[in-house]
Amino acid sequence: MTHTHNRHLNRTQSALCIVLLFLCLDVSFDNAYAQSAKNIEYRAKAAFIYNFLKFISYPESAFPSPHSPIIITIGSTPDIVSAFNTLKGKKIKGRPLIIEQYTTDARLKKSHVVFFSSEDEALLQKALPALQTENILTIGETDRCKKAGGIIHFYPEGTRLRFEINITAAERARLKISSELLRLAKITR
């Protein structure tokens, strides 16, 4: 009974969320709201990245201990920072998520996920080749990043946000990606 009631409450809340989701997926939103639309877009991407981690397993050597955090490194663009801050405090398979802004290359190598946005791509791109052999999930949203060997690449398809996975790059990074995820992605080699 209580359960039903909660569900019902959730439904009203979720109606709002759905609207929000459609909004966030609509990248060609009115220019007047470009700034906030950008923000919404990155929130969606941050959510995608969070979900990717559920289907991707790292080799044991990637973490010092079973409860070590998963470090996600991002650029310092305010929209991205605020979007990724929504992931703070969440956990994946018992590991807490830590969001870090890029500082040094050495620090970058200790990350588990690196997101190259279109804003700070130039800054990060020089670091990408060095990360390819590390157990790091590299994610990008530009063709340049894709060509440079990023593992996951976001791209829009109509109003939808899609992603493609470079299996070769993943194998090189020794990351195992669940077939469930792969089924949804556009596979490249």
Binding site: L21, F55, S178, E180, L181, R183, L184
Partner: peptide, 11 residues
Amino acid sequence: RAALLFGDEPA
């Protein structure tokens, strides 16, 4: 599960 998570209805 994945399709659901990523909202991939066609999948």
